[in-house]
Amino acid sequence: MFCRSSIVARINLSIIVKRTLFIQAWFSDLISADFSLRGKFMAKAQRPLSPHLQVYRFGAHMAVSIIHRVTGSMLAFGAILLTWWLVALATGYEYFNMVQSFASSAIGRLVLFGITFALMQHFASGIRHLFMDSGKLYELKANTASAKFTFVFSAIMTLVIWAAAYKVMGAY
């Protein structure tokens, strides 16, 4: 009695398992979605990704976008230097002169030159972003031309600012 019922149960169980597997296979073929049962067993399935940066040809419009963020982060470092300089100015004559000697050293001037460029580039590409926020400069030619213009503007302005600063200091 006991033995027989167990055989029946085993047969019934195997039928249930087979049917379940069949239904699962059919179902997962049907929906074939990420959250189907098959996804759990095929964790490293190679799924197609939506096209991103790698499918586009690199251009000035892409460069200006990432450089806007890079220069913004550089200016955050510049803000720390400005704070240091203001604190030194408020602290007193001796400490201020020490900070000034740092700033006027070769490395200090190189850093300040870089920050000047970052400020001018962020300034120009920021104004370009304001135009884009108002719905302008989305045409391909205008977009690329304005992106290139920001680099020309920042290069020229950086040189003009440093030429003017040296002129004020009486270097020439």
Binding site: F96, L119, I161, A165, V168, M169
Partner: peptide
């Protein structure tokens, strides 16, 4: 960002104009 436009111009012009000044002058 808009407010920064005139403020940055002020900052650049005045710091270039005062370049090389002493502690007392600053």
């Amino acid at each position: 960002a808009v407010a920064n436009i005139p403020l940055v111009i002020f900052f650049i012009v005045s710091f270039v104009g005062n370049a090389g000044k002493s502690h007392a002058e600053w």
